[in-house]
């Protein structure tokens, strides 16, 4: 009997241990959230809601407003999504619908997987020495067009366009894999019914596959957006670091992530540092909300697909 009892005790100990590990993750998240809210308190107390709407970011005058960075983040991310969407959808359709097993498909798939593994800092490095000179040439050329003389384009090279282009390349692997996942969930019976009525492949895709997968594809765009707004290194290297509201897509700017990366190490403890933490808090909240909505939509699609 004694051995059975010690076994039971060990069982209990084991169960408690793994439960403790699991609860540890919840505690970790709570600590993360608590820390970032606590560290932002000086900034929240000093600027309140005006932090989000003020466009002055002045470390010397100790006045801080995050609007230029919120705008920079939204513009670069949305531009990147628009650029990458046709490519991601094409890859998703090729891998999920056209030929899941063909030779070109295999090639494209392994290349995309390779692309997903390239670190952000290497994308940024390449962008700085390959993409930026090309964009600078483009800007020089644009400046000579009489009509655009006063558009305020300067040949910086770095700026929103450079950051958005690299960001677009970086999110293609992610957004195409989410889109492929939802495209393969479309019930076979629906597609076969359409084919048997004489539809071409394009008609099946445009009238059956895309409408059925619509909410999932939108969720995928949302998840990619969540990815894009938190992207730091490549954007920091390419966006040009200007703490003002950008005037056009060639202008240098800063995103929420890049301003933290640029200024945190040199920030004085106090309101400046606290303001950077508040930007981190905003970034955290936006990413979490965007992520959770996206995942809920995809989970619910998963369940639907399982039932039909």
């Amino acid at each position: 009997m004694t051995t059975v009892k010690t076994f039971n005790q060990r069982d209990q100990l084991f169960k408690n241990t793994i439960m403790l590990n699991a609860i540890g993750i919840v505690v970790l998240l709570a600590v993360i959230f608590g820390t970032i809210v606590y560290s932002s308190k000086d900034s929240i107390a000093a600027f309140g809601l005006g932090f989000i709407t003020s466009k002055t970011w002045d470390p010397i005058g100790m006045t801080f407003g995050a609007l230029p960075f919120i705008a920079g983040t939204l513009i670069t991310s949305i531009l990147a999504l628009l650029i990458s969407l046709p490519f991601s959808l094409a890859i998703a359709l090729l891998l999920g619908e056209y030929s899941p097993k063909g030779k070109i498909t295999g090639f494209v798939r392994s290349m995309i997987e390779l692309m997903a593994g390239v670190p952000s800092v290497i994308f940024g490095f390449w962008g700085l020495y390959y993409l930026v000179p090309k964009i600078r040439d483009l800007e020089m050329w644009l400046m000579q067009i009489p009509f655009l003389e006063n558009a305020g384009i300067l040949p910086y090279g770095v700026g929103i366009l450079a950051a958005s282009l690299i960001l677009a390349v970086m999110i293609i692997p992610y957004s195409s894999s989410v889109a492929r996942e939802v495209i393969t969930m479309v019930p076979r019976a629906l597609k076969e019914a359409a084919y048997s009525l004489g539809s071409t492949r394009f008609e099946v895709i445009s009238k059956i596959v895309l409408p059925y997968a619509r909410s999932g594809i939108i969720a995928g765009v949302l998840l990619s957006f969540g990815r894009a707004i938190g992207e730091t290194m490549a954007v920091t290297m390419l966006i040009g670091n200007a703490n003002e509201l950008p005037q056009n897509i060639f202008a240098p700017a800063n995103t929420m992530a890049s301003v933290i990366a640029n200024e945190f190490a040199e920030a004085q403890a106090g309101v400046h540092m606290s303001s950077l933490f508040e930007i981190g808090l905003l970034l955290f909240l936006i990413s979490v909300v965007v992520n959770l909505i996206g995942r809920v939509v995809i989970h619910s699609m998963n369940k639907q697909g399982g039932q039909s």
């Binding site: 970790l28 969540g226 938190g230 992207e231 933290i260 970034l283 990413s287």
Partner: peptide, 9 residues
């Protein structure tokens, strides 16, 4: 949620 936190944060 943890997976969605940006790395800089």
């Amino acid at each position: 949620v943890l997976q969605g936190i940006p790395s800089i944060v």
